[in-house]
Amino acid sequence: MYKKIRVLVGKPGLDGHDRGAKVVAAALRDAGMEVVYTGLHQTCESIVEAAVQEDVDIIGLSILSGAHMTIFSRILKLLKAKKAIDILVIGGGIIPDDDMKRLQRMGVRKLFGPGTPTSEIVDWIKANAGKSKKRPAKKTRRTRRAPKKSTK
């Protein structure tokens, strides 16, 4: 049965630059995917929680604050703890080349730099989503509500 690709677009940490995340979220939606956009200022915990609950195929994180090394490694660790490593982690933002290589070695599947056409992101997701899914597919939820904000 045809199932829509489900993507969580997340803005972790304090970074308020949401232009890229919103443009990508809109492009993925227009490409026929189910998009959950978290909104700003999410903790890594709330992003992983939402990703598992929403049964997404992909987590896409946008980070322009320079905190990418800390945040991606935390997300990967939390996914592992939740036994949800079949959710692919991708991202974009202001990330120097060296850091991109380190992050990819760590397990981030794909990073898209500034200037990437949204069509390239759509194509990559279509080619890769769902391939490593091991968990039984849950019933697709219709909700697009963002996870509850956790602000200290």
């Binding site: 940490g13 304090l14 200022h41 322009l64 604050s65 320079g66 905190a67 800390t70």
Partner: peptide, 22 residues
């Protein structure tokens, strides 16, 4: 940096990875 912009101290849990970065 982002913690300062949001009125958080450098040792706040939300500041992790962000201190002195941007």
């Amino acid at each position: 940096d982002f913690p300062t912009l949001y009125g958080r101290d450098s040792d706040d849990s939300f500041s992790r990875g962000e201190v002195g970065k941007c």
